[in-house]
């Protein structure tokens, strides 16, 4: 990643909010309210814009969620990481599919895996999970569906020591 100094326009706009992370990316921590505005600036208004969408995903930190956007410019190794902490109770962001068309799928994935609501998304269906899946799998408090006939894990395989204690093998 880039070991260059932070560009002047970003340094002016974000002042202390932008730092250079350990892997060389420029990390911008913003609040949930400023998120959409920041992304619109980086992806559309700024010249040259960070028009290459690298990734969008969420992280579960226990008390809070964090939404992370990785942006870059083609032919360069500059990378911007925009992070924003959201409350766990009603996490919600606004869509950026109008800025980067490739945001559609990562946002759908975020919605189904973490339950982060994405307002204004043109197509809020489940992406990877089957329709009607209960629960948000990537949250830390997700309960494994052990009552499902296909997905349940056998006691014998999951905890072999305990099973064998209860059902000892006869010699």
């Amino acid at each position: 990643m880039s070991d260059d100094a932070i560009p002047t326009d970003l340094a002016e706009r974000f002042a202390d909010g932008i730092t250079t992370a350990a892997d060389g990316a420029w990390e911008i921590a913003v609040s949930a309210e400023q998120l959409r505005e920041t992304l619109a600036f980086l992806g559309a208004d700024r010249q040259p814009a960070f028009d290459y969408l690298v990734d969008i995903f969420a992280v579960d930190y226990g008390e809070q969620f964090e939404v992370v956007y990785h942006l870059s410019r083609p032919r360069t190794h500059e990378m911007v990481r925009v992070c924003s902490r959201l409350s766990r109770q009603k996490p919600s962001v606004q869509t950026v599919t109008d800025i980067w068309a490739g945001a559609s799928w990562p946002e759908r994935e975020m919605m189904e895996m973490y339950g982060v609501a994405v307002e204004g998304h043109p197509d809020p269906r489940n992406l990877l999970l089957p329709e009607g899946w209960k629960g948000y799998p990537l949250r830390k408090d997700y309960e494994y569906p052990d009552d499902h006939p296909w997905l349940s894990r056998d006691e014998l395989h999951d905890k072999p020591g305990e099973y064998l204690k209860q059902h000892p093998v006869e010699e």
Binding site: L129, P137, W150, L151, D158
Partner: peptide, 10 residues
């Protein structure tokens, strides 16, 4: 995928 995969048929 036996241990932790919530979406894989065992």
């Amino acid at each position: 995928f036996y241990q932790d995969a919530y979406s894989v048929v065992k």
